[in-house]
Design a protein around this nucleic acid. Structure first.
Lengths: 203, 203
DNA sequence: TTTATATTTAACCGTTTGGTTAAATTAAAT
DNA sequence: ATTTAATTTAACCAAACGGTTAAATATAAA
C-alpha cells in the first residue's frame, strides 16, 4: 500500500511530463491528469508552471549524476571501477531515457539554471584525477587530462541513449538489438578507455 | 550583391529559427521577421507551419551528415582520415551548434520523420568497414564492429558540442577555454580510436 | 459535532498563436 | 499601358493554454 501525498503525486507527475515534453511542451492539464487530480488543485499546490518546474528541475538534474559513491570509494582496480560505472550508468539512464535530453535542452535554452546546481560530477572527477595521478607517477599510465577522460566516458555512454531513435532508424535496430548494442558497450567502453591510459608509446 | 528569392529567404529564416527553437518553440512571426517579410506573405508561400517545417527538415538533416566524400575516398592512412574527419566535423558543427540537438529532439518526438531519410552515414560506415576488414585480415587491426567504432567517433565528437553549456557551467570553461578543449579533442579522439584498433592483446 | 482543510466542478478571463481575409500598394510581365 | 503577380497593411477568428474564481462537496482535525 502506497502512502502518497498529493504533493508527491504532483511532483512525480510533473517530473514525468516535463522530462518527456520539456518546459514549453508540457501542459498543466496533462500534469494534473497524470497526477490523478484536476487543474484547480494543481494550481492550489503550485501557483504557476514556473514554480512547479523549478521544484522538479533540481531533482531531475541530480538523477543525471550517477550514484558512484560506492563504486569509486572501493579499492578495486580502475578498469573494474569504470566497468561498474558504465554498466550502472547505462542501466540507470535506460530507466529514464528522456532525462539527459531534457536536461541538455533546458540548460541550452536557459543556462542560468545551472547556477543553482553545485558539485555535479565533482566527486567522480576528483577520484579519477587522484587515481590517475598516482599511476602516472608510478609510470603505469600515461598523462591525460581527467576532464577529457571523463567526457570521453560520458559521451560514449550517454550519446547512444540520447540518439537512440536515430541509431535505430539508421541501422534498422529493433528494441532488442539496440539493448544488445548497449550491453556490448558496457564492455567496449571501459576497454577503450583503459587502452588509452595504458598505451606506452605516446605520439 | 545577393540575388535571394523570397522563398529562399523564407527557407533560410525558417531553418534558422526552427533549429534554434524547435518545431513547437518556433513562432511564425519570428520566422517572418527574420526573413524580412510579414506573416501574410509567409503564409502565402507556405500554407502552414507544418509544410514549412517539412520543407526545411530534410535539408537540416542532410547538414548533420558530414561531407566526407573527399576524405574517405583518398588513399591516406586510416588514422589520418579519422583525424581529418573529426576536425572537419567539429568545425562544421561548431558553425551551427544547435543543429544536432534539434535533429535529436525532433526525431525523438516523432521518429516517423526518419522514414523520408535514406543513406545517412551509410557512406562512411561502408568505407570504414572495408578498410578495417582489410587490415584485420592482414593482422594489423583487431576485429571490431564498425557500428560501434562509428558511434564512438560520433559520440566523442558530437556530445561535447551538444552538452556545451553544461560542460562550461560545470567546469567553469570560458568560450575560449571551451574552444581550446574542442581543439584538443581533434587530436585526442583519433588517437584513442586508433589505439583501440591497433592494440594486439585482446582481452 | 463543529471547524478547518483538501478536492472537485465548472465556468470564466486574458494572452498567445496559427491561420485567414480583404483591400491597398508595389513591382514585374505582356 | 494593361494585366498579372508579389507584397504590405491591418484587422480579424478560433483554438489552445496558463491561470483564476466561486461555489459545492468530501475529508480530516479539533
Amino acid at each position: 500500500m502506497k502512502e502518497d501525498t498529493t504533493e508527491e503525486k504532483i511532483l512525480a507527475a510533473a517530473k514525468h511530463v516535463f522530462i518527456k515534453k520539456g518546459m514549453y511542451g508540457a501542459r498543466m492539464q496533462e500534469i494534473a491528469d497524470t497526477a490523478g487530480i484536476n487543474k484547480a488543485l494543481l494550481h492550489y499546490y503550485f501557483r504557476s508552471k514556473n514554480k512547479l518546474f523549478d521544484a522538479i528541475f533540481q531533482k531531475a538534474f541530480q538523477e543525471l549524476a550517477p550514484k558512484t559513491s560506492g563504486i569509486f570509494k572501493g579499492s578495486l582496480p580502475l578498469e573494474e571501477k569504470i566497468r561498474l560505472f558504465v554498466a550502472n550508468y547505462i542501466d540507470t539512464i535506460s530507466l529514464n531515457p528522456f532525462l539527459p535530453l531534457f536536461i541538455i535542452n533546458e540548460i541550452s535554452q536557459n543556462p542560468d539554471r545551472l547556477k543553482n546546481i553545485s558539485g555535479f560530477m565533482g566527486g567522480i572527477l576528483e577520484m579519477l584525477s587522484k587515481e590517475i595521478a598516482i599511476k602516472v607517477k608510478a609510470g603505469e599510465y600515461q598523462e591525460i587530462d581527467p576532464v577529457h577522460l571523463l567526457i570521453n566516458i560520458i559521451s560514449m555512454t550517454l550519446f547512444p541513449i540520447l540518439a537512440k531513435p536515430i541509431i535505430q532508424g539508421v541501422f534498422h535496430y529493433s528494441d532488442e538489438k539496440f539493448n544488445e548494442f548497449l550491453e556490448e558497450r558496457k564492455q567496449l567502453i571501459p576497454y577503450l578507455i583503459m587502452n588509452q591510459l595504458k598505451k606506452q608509446d605516446v605520439p
